[in-house]
Design a protein around this nucleic acid. Structure first.
Lengths: 335, 335
DNA sequence: CTGAAAGCGCTAACAC
DNA sequence: GTGTTAGCGCTTTCAG
């Protein structure tokens, strides 16, 4: 089984230190003789020596591991984010430990604690209802972390989010520009600040164009049963405003379910009804080529989050400003 | 900052041992007086004591962490698998560290070594071109791991895969049953055994029905540029066999891209062309309600993989047979 | 009922 | 050039 420094040292009649040094490539620096070095390296290789990183971490006080907490790794968006984060982290020599809170929101803070206990060097978190308490503790302790996708304006933390308000404002403006007058806004998870921002963007666009903001054109879908609830929501909108001519969805999976609905009812989403959504899913290109999309810059979100975190970890000067990054979405408008 | 057992012990004038015991809930068992216990617990809470799991792991020789290696966490299928694995692992008290090999296949074995060095208790791997060497080493060392999605028949390992051959055989049989005579098979990643099995299933179904296996009805798509290459492949099939009346796709993303093609060319996939695929993607229900699907039992794959692994980890008797599990797909056939 | 001490595998300051 | 030693924070045996 895996041999240790001590085993090698004993077998070769040198000290642990010597072995440690040459295996850490400090051999020359520490002026260990070439023969000893070679001897050690050869034997280590022969034995298939694998350093115990647990011990190393304990000793060094840094684990070179980052923790990632997302609401659900099964979700396309977070999976992509995770991918980008993992790639970037690897470039910096960090591995990733992740937890998803899934349905069990109550256990989010438990996971934060767990990861801190496992001594990850820092955390990247897409918070849900997260007891802010846990974040406040981390701020207090100066534990390095960065929020993504969502944030708390009242907390002084690092974060990387998108311009939610601007994205929806642009989307709706475009629909207006194309002559739409009765544009509905369909959303969910309204306890989230980001969702409110998206709604704000919608309202702002209407207001600027002096269009009325009608309650009948607002649809709120229950998150945990969105596949079925969106049907009620859409039914209601069409009942109350039969000549609705545009839809802005606050997120991709609502748009997808709405498409299912439109197809089922054979609706003319080509000319009659204008479509817009935040974030995408691969099938939109086929299902609704006319869909106007504000793409999430997943790569930038992921990469920047890692950047910021690693920067904070590796800077000797720890007391610098938190970075608050608001990324623009990538607008993909159809003529 | 995070206090340690020693700090607590010192502050309370007791020994580290005592503190360790009560905080590990062995207080009663070890007959520590109620007052001492309470004192310790209260102080630990006040200080916000968080055990250093690194130290605990090092000491106990087990990290309660599982490693997951997939080709790409950004891929829908693996993301779902990861979700299931994470959930199940959490139930057993394990957290997950993951790596995806992404494009950089050469680094797979590096990741295995890294995770072993980090002393994960076991590994769940969806291998790609993986130098089998690494697996052989693990077998030799008796390091616990289970393969998912793909496997090597010549290696005696745990694995959880699906019945690839049976799935495609069933899919194609159904198409035949519906009167299709010229069924094409479109695939990719043909260096993978599982892909060959799927092809075998296709051929088996044809043979059983005494249909010819035509080379012109076989399409192989280059994996790394499948979005564009599939167009050539489909063009070629339609050119050589204009009256092709069925398609069996070896995997979901090929089916999706093919749909894009069918839509673009306005083809009749409702009656004229029969469709079948292994695994699904959310939009199929809208895009192609007629698509016959052999669903991957993601949940079962994930859960069973964790089961098998944890079982091997926690059984005192380590020398039992490797479990080789072949799960049926869930067939979703359209009339 | 509680404590001392060794040990998990590694690093690093300080000898010689 | 190389070794000694203490220490990272925890568990656990053995002694009182």
């Amino acid at each position: 089984m895996s041999s240790s420094l001590k085993d090698i040292a004993k077998a070769l009649n040198v000290s642990k230190t010597t072995v440690s040094w040459v295996l850490a490539n400090q051999g020359d620096e520490r002026k260990i003789s070439a023969v000893t070095q070679e001897k050690i390296r050869a034997y280590a290789k022969e034995m298939g020596y694998q350093p115990n990183l647990l011990a190393k971490s304990l000793s060094e006080g840094t684990s070179h591991t980052l923790g990632l907490i997302v609401p659900s790794i099964g979700d396309e968006f977070y999976a992509q984010i995770a991918k980008e984060i993992e790639l970037e982290a690897k470039d910096y020599g960090y591995t990733l430990t992740f937890c998803s809170s899934e349905t069990d929101v109550g256990r989010e803070s438990e996971m934060i604690r767990m990861l801190k206990s496992k001594r990850v060097d820092g955390l990247i978190i897409a918070p849900t209802k997260l007891s802010k308490l846990e974040l406040e503790i981390m701020i207090e302790e100066k534990f390095p972390f960065v929020l993504i996708d969502r944030f708390f304006p009242e907390l002084d933390t690092n974060y990387v989010i998108i311009d939610n308000e601007g994205a929806c404002e642009n989307l709706v403006n475009w629909l207006i520009h194309k002559g739409k007058k009765k544009i509905a806004f369909v959303t969910t998870d309204t306890h989230l600040l980001v969702m409110n921002k998206r709604h704000d963007g919608y309202k702002k666009a209407l207001t600027e164009s002096r269009l009325p903001i009608l309650l009948e054109l607002y649809g709120e879908v229950k998150r945990n049963e969105y596949e079925t609830d969106i049907i009620n929501v859409l039914d209601k909108i069409f009942r109350q405003v039969p000549d609705v001519d545009g839809f802005c969805f606050s997120t991709h999976y609502l748009a997808l379910e709405a498409l299912r609905y439109f197809y089922k009812h054979n609706m003319d989403i080509k000319d009659k009804i204008g479509l817009a959504t935040l974030h995408t899913t691969p099938s939109f290109g086929i299902l609704a080529p006319q869909m106007n999309i504000a793409h999430q810059p997943v790569r930038e979100i992921g990469r920047n989050a890692v950047h910021i975190l690693v920067n904070e970890l590796e800077k000797s000067n720890p007391s610098h400003e938190k970075v608050k990054m608001v990324l623009p979405t990538m607008l993909d408008f159809k003529p």
